[in-house]
């Protein structure tokens, strides 16, 4: 793993991503809900092939950050540059086309549709034929549908799920549902993928496998991944840079080693009592 280096905006990115435009450059981001500020002065830069972690106690504002990055919520303050382009005022679907994909903490699959169709919906913008061409079943329809089918199976095989292609998404076991959400996000060909608690509800062996797969995805697709996770083994194991959020503000940024030994982080997680949950 490369070491983290400082870049001009006083942010940290891995050494190998130096000199390239960061995939995300977030400055002074903030949002208020009814006078209360849920996220404030959030600054973060993510390198093009970085695996970054966002951690913090419950209610710290982590999911809110993801919602801000995808314009599900519109920021009250600050700016976001996605691949160098300002995301202000864009719709969620436009941001996806610009290169940001995500999964959800409370899984949001298309439950009544098949696994394959879930992935094909992720491939929507990569499948190229018009409504008229579809209704008339012109050759381009068959060609593109075949391409989408093959691509869907190929992506599913990343997680060894190609045999479940015909299953209803809602009938998958919990862990498989989380994996399918990742596949679906990946299908949209993102430059950065946001994973909201991808290991939640998984057993230790599934989590270990997920860690490998996240790394594999980064290495195969050369994309950045930002993940929220409470499982410290996973976070410390695969994240290169970690930001710690507490009450909507970043209280620490750095490599896993720096975060583990940061007294402010330990206090945020455990209060004044002390202990070692952050190391768990």
């Amino acid at each position: 793993m490369d070491k983290l280096v400082k870049v001009p905006s006083n942010a940290l990115i891995p050494e190998r991503d130096l000199g390239k435009l960061p995939i995300l450059d977030i400055r002074h981001l903030g949002i208020d809900f009814g006078g209360l500020s849920a996220v404030d002065d959030f600054n973060l830069t993510i390198g093009r092939t970085e695996i970054a972690g966002l951690i913090g106690p419950n209610g710290a504002g982590k999911t809110t950050v993801f919602n801000l990055l995808t314009n599900v919520y519109h920021p009250t303050r600050g700016s976001i540059l996605l691949d160098g382009k300002d995301t202000a005022g864009k719709k969620t679907y436009q941001l996806n086309k610009m290169g940001i994909a995500r999964t959800f903490q409370n899984i949001r699959l298309f439950k009544n549709l098949t696994v394959e169709d879930n992935v094909k919906i992720g491939l929507h913008n990569a499948t190229d034929y018009s409504m008229a061409q579809a209704i008339l079943r012109l050759p381009v329809y068959w060609k593109e549908e075949k391409k989408a089918h093959e691509k869907a199976l190929e992506l599913l095989s990343l997680f060894d799920m190609q045999d479940m292609a015909d299953w209803k998404a809602g009938s998958l076991p919990y862990g498989a549902q989380r994996r399918l959400e990742i596949v679906r996000a990946l299908a949209t060909k993102p430059g950065i993928m946001l994973l909201d608690e991808p290991a939640a509800g998984m057993n230790p062996s599934e989590t270990a496998e997920l860690m490998e797969n996240i790394r594999k995805i980064r290495d195969t697709f050369h994309i950045a991944i930002m993940l929220i996770e409470h499982d410290m083994n996973l976070v410390m194991g695969i994240c290169e840079g970690i930001a710690v959020l507490n009450y909507g503000r970043i209280i620490a940024k750095g490599s896993p080693e720096e975060i583990k030994s940061n007294p402010m982080v330990i206090e945020a997680y455990l209060g004044k009592k002390g202990g070692a949950k952050a190391h768990a």
Binding site: T92, Y93, L113, K120, H124, A185
Partner: peptide, 26 residues
Amino acid sequence: MLMKSRHGRAILSIRENEIAAESCGI
């Protein structure tokens, strides 16, 4: 024919989950 196409799938995805559909670029 419409429903068995990418356009039809987009329509179904909205019924299933609007936020997820939008996040998929629809």
